[in-house]
Design a protein around this nucleic acid. Structure first.
Length: 497
RNA sequence: GGUCGUUUGGCCGAGGGGCUAGGCACAGGUCUGCAAAACCUGCUACUCCGGUUCAAAUCCGGAAGCGACCUCCA
């Protein structure tokens, strides 16, 4: 079935029909993490957002090459006077090799992403491994006349680019003149011809550990260069989709466009996608606000705010966080609060239970085709096709859960074909496309637990049959204390962790 | 300060000119030895002030709150 996928393109500020450059293939580049600290909630959002895009495009039958970089060079500490490389600074503090730090946090990032159900990208290039490509890019821009060398550093000539292409600001909607009116005084500005110019190559100061030789100086690439160079290397130019957080629109992505246009004459990609940001209890997340929560802290359920007060009421599993993020559309902000997270935890458990219940629903001979079931699959596709509207997909799955539970209660009759269809819709949308998984049933002892529970519930059923309420309640209470909920139904008891 | 975006019921969130998602919470009911679960029912909202329209949460203008970005921070 051919699906008409609409994607909101930041460039045009509207939804556009998705058409790949090469039929059947999609190239997607997403800005990945800077590996100088533990992954936090801000990393989970884009990773999950574009994991959905990756999964859904594959589901539609596209062969997708998904490139997500690891930034391990060249980014300067925000509040550092000397413009010291972030990773180098951290390394000095911890007495480690810079690459050791990068590797350590890269590993931890991978672990956190795996737990969140984020598929690994097709290629995960490191900026440090592509210095040559970045130097070549800088040279191309110099050759094209859109850059100049100043004191060993190379800067992009924004004014000239603007005069010749009138494209600077096309993505972010910014007007150069306006920007400059509000420009602040910053270090290093005197090397530039124009305050709006940005670095393509930066000469390293003596204390700067991470440095590479180049035709202009020992230094490191400018902060927009890696994405332009690696995107073109692995996806060609132009490619289909470029993604990242909304905070990257300017200057990062704007500058990527400029670098690409200056060096090749055309834009880097066709569709720009940006996920919105995350807030915590209505506040933006920031170190200074003391609400900078790492993913591991979420998983463990422990985070003290700046007053030493515990902010998390409980631990939240990776799947709870994933489901919560998917319950909001990726272009909206999403607010993390205990009440909201608990709602997601329960909601997701309800869907999983309904899916399991489906296995116990018996087909009714002679039942009519259920019109709601018949419409379900396409409604889910329609929601996904409308710019990946996962909250709507989830709302349809809740409707499906209601149908399943009604059937299990005997209040609704389903024919076998509808039961099969319900199972397939859950398999497709909840598990395959949205990447949710049943954490409780993982861990390897599932079979054993199943049989043990079967034995226990069998004993309890016998007790109940004998009206031995003391024994049956003792079993139920003891199981509850161990974290297992017993649920009595018409056809015997079931259990849930 | 500038540019852009956003503001939905107790909480989270879709939608986006008339038909008013979904989840959680809460209340009542059915079922059950009791409880839980499940099902049924109720709670029906769109920041404020103007305007356009037969009709506005939805469009336009203004105000306020919140957020992102504003040059070396992905």
């Amino acid at each position: 079935m051919e699906q008409q996928l609409l994607i909101y393109n930041t460039l045009s500020r509207q939804k556009e029909l998705f058409r790949p450059i090469n039929e059947g293939h999609v190239g997607m580049y997403v800005c990945g993490p800077t590996v100088y600290g533990d992954a936090h909630l801000g990393h989970a959002r884009p990773a999950i957002t574009f994991d959905i895009v990756f999964r859904y495009l594959q589901h539609l039958g596209y062969k997708v090459r998904y490139v997500r970089n690891i930034t391990d060079v060249g980014h300067l500490e925000h509040d550092a006077d000397e413009g010291e490389d972030k990773i180098a600074k951290k390394a000095r503090l911890e007495q480690l090799e810079p690459m050791e730090v990068a590797q350590y946090y890269t590993n931890r990032y991978h672990t956190a992403m795996e737990r969140l159900g984020v598929l690994p990208p097709s290629i995960e290039p490191h900026a440090s491994g592509h210095i040559m490509e970045q130097i070549a890019l800088v040279q191309q821009i110099l050759d094209a006349g859109y850059a100049y060398v100043s004191n060993g550093s190379v800067y992009f000539d924004v004014r000239k680019y603007q005069e010749q292409t009138h494209k600077y600001g096309q993505l972010s909607g910014r007007v150069i003149e306006e920007m400059l009116a509000t420009t602040r005084e910053l270090d290093g500005q005197e090397e530039k011809r124009f305050p709006g110019d940005f670095a393509l190559w930066k000469k390293a100061s003596p204390e700067h550990i991470m440095r590479w030789p180049s035709p202009w100086s020992d230094g490191f690439p400018g902060w927009h260069a890696e994405c332009t160079a690696m995107g073109a290397k692995y996806l060609g130019s132009p490619f289909d989709i470029h993604g990242g957080g909304m905070d990257l629109v300017f200057p990062h992505h704007e500058s990527e466009i400029a670098q690409c246009v200056a060096s090749t004459g055309h834009a880097p990609c066709r569709y720009w996608m940006h996920n919105n940001m995350i807030t915590i209890n209505g506040q933006k997340m920031g170190k200074s606000l003391g609400n900078f929560i790492t993913l591991d802290e979420f998983f463990a359920g422990s985070h003290k705010d700046k007053d030493g007060k515990e902010m998390l009421a409980q631990a939240y599993s990776p799947m709870t966080i994933r489901f919560f993020i998917l319950q909001a559309h990726y272009r909206s902000t999403v607010d993390f609060g205990n009440e909201a997270l608990q709602a997601s935890e329960k909601g997701f458990a309800k869907l999983l239970e309904a899916y399991k219940t489906l296995g116990r629903v018996a087909a009714s001979a002679g039942a009519e085709a259920n019109p709601e079931v018949a419409a379900l699959r396409q409604k889910c596709y329609d929601a996904m096709n409308d710019d990946f509207n996962t909250p709507i997909v989830i709302s349809h799955l809740f409707e499906a859960a209601r149908i399943i539970n009604s059937a299990a209660d005997g209040k609704l009759k389903l024919r076998q074909a509808d039961i099969d269809e319900l199972r397939q819709v859950f398999d497709t949308f909840l598990f395959e496309v949205m990447g949710m998984r049943d954490e409780a049933s993982e861990g390897g002892n599932g079979q054993l637990v199943d049989s043990l529970m079967h034995i226990i519930l069998d004993i309890r059923a016998t007790a109940k049959a004998n009206k031995d309420w003391a024994t049956s309640d003792k079993i139920r209470d003891a199981l509850a204390a161990a974290g297992v909920t017993v649920k009595d139904g018409k056809d015997g008891a079931t259990w849930q962790l």
